[in-house]
Simulated assay, not measured.
Amino acid sequence: MTWGEPSAGVRPIVVFGSLNQDVRLASSRIARPGETIGDASMTLRWGGKGANQAVAAARLGGEVLLVSAVGDDSIGRAALADLDAEGVDRRHVRAVAEAPTGTAVVIVDAAGDNAITVAPGANAAVSADDLAAVLGEVPAGVLVTCFELPIDAVRTAVGHAAAAGWEVIVNPAPAADPLVGEWPDGCLFTPNAHELVALTGTTDVERAARQLAAQVNGTVVATLGAEGAVVVSNDRVEWVAAPRAAAVDTTGAGDTFNGALAWCRARGMDIVEAVRVAVVAASASTEHEGAREGMPTLEQLTARSDPGRPARAADGGGPS
């Protein structure tokens, strides 16, 4: 099977997630607490994990619907216009009068590493009811969600989707505490290495991934930056290497990974092959500044995966 040819009927992708405007500061390094660094340059870009993941899947040709919210303001209207240009169905992105569009401040250092602080704004108004309306009108497919929405809304929405026969990908980002609450069996969790430690309290990657997989009775794909990813379920551990990439900015690499993973699963790919494709997409995304600017199209992704294509001579660049 080639990436452009699904093994069976293509399923829709629904993203239940956040939408933000990113204020990006490029600086020589990230300031320590109490320190001021005055050499940054600023750009405004679109972001939010949910919207980013939707764009990543749509760039590959996926049928993608986003469930989210923006403020009833000029920033929100511009964000919706950008989704239109990307081919994302945004009919279920609500305009909220009482809150501004979400904002994230993204600080990127000279090595491409980042620190992010988010003001959720209208994202805090998104509820499981917003997804329920979609589940009644769209055939069961792949749901992707993240922790940039209220966690109770996420957990309830995931339960509704799983009960309706949807495959569920939970990107537990950001995560600062152990995972709590009841989650339906069979979900696919995609933490990065830092989130995996926060969710489990365990620092060894494989042991932590096994612990989380047992807790949710599902599968864990832990993304490990330049080291690629590991797929863990009750009876399987598969390590997937990342290609070398000339990393400029790792912002959005994890979102690219999750969007590409959803696209692969919607087309019937086995989980390990889907992770291989998603790792390549995430690595490609790091070679451009900004969360979305490097997200590849299917043509670009296929070209990068050509066995005859020379490896990029650089460090880093995997999903995170």
Rank of each mutant, 00 (worst) to 15 (best):
G225H: 02
A246H: 05
I151Y: 00
V106N: 09
A132S: 15
R94F: 14
G38Y: 04
R304H: 13
H92P: 08
T286F: 10
L196I: 07
V144Y: 03
V205L: 06
F189P: 00
E5Q: 03
V170I: 15
A208M: 09
L131N: 03
I169D: 10
V170Y: 13
A291D: 00
D130Q: 13
E238V: 14
G317Q: 03
A303K: 12
A57Y: 12
C187Y: 07
G159A: 12
A282V: 04
A313K: 07
A247K: 03
G4L: 06
G254L: 14
R24T: 15
G62F: 14
A314P: 01
S41G: 11
A198V: 02
P184A: 09
L131T: 11
G141H: 05
A245L: 02
R292M: 13
N114A: 15
V67T: 02
H288D: 13
T202E: 14
L149G: 12
R91P: 13
E148W: 07
R207W: 04
V64Q: 05
G112W: 06
L224S: 07
V230F: 01
V93T: 15
R312Q: 15
G112I: 03
L199I: 10
G38R: 12
G112A: 10
F16D: 04
A97L: 03
R267C: 11
G290H: 04
A262L: 13
V197S: 08
G228I: 06
V197F: 09
G159K: 12
A284R: 02
H160E: 11
W183V: 00
P310T: 08
D113N: 14
V70Q: 08
W263K: 03
M295C: 12
V231M: 06
A54P: 04
P120V: 06
D72H: 10
T145M: 00
A110P: 04
G218F: 15
A78M: 01
A175M: 10
E273N: 02
R267F: 09
E63P: 05
L179H: 06
D255N: 11
M42S: 14
A56M: 05
A81L: 12
P139G: 13
S18D: 14
L19G: 14
D235H: 15
S28R: 15
V64N: 08
A99G: 00
L80V: 14
A314C: 09
E167W: 07
E206T: 12
G268E: 01
D109W: 10
G165Q: 03
N20W: 05
V67H: 01
N234L: 07
E195I: 05
R304C: 10
V275S: 05
L143P: 00
V180R: 08
T250K: 05
G294A: 09
P191E: 05
L66N: 01
D82H: 15
A85K: 13
V158Q: 07
L149V: 06
G290C: 01
A99K: 12
D255R: 11
A8H: 12
V15L: 11
P6Y: 10
V64H: 01
P319W: 00
L143M: 02
A229E: 08
D185C: 09
A31S: 15
E273I: 04
T219V: 15
T203P: 01
T286A: 01
V67Y: 02
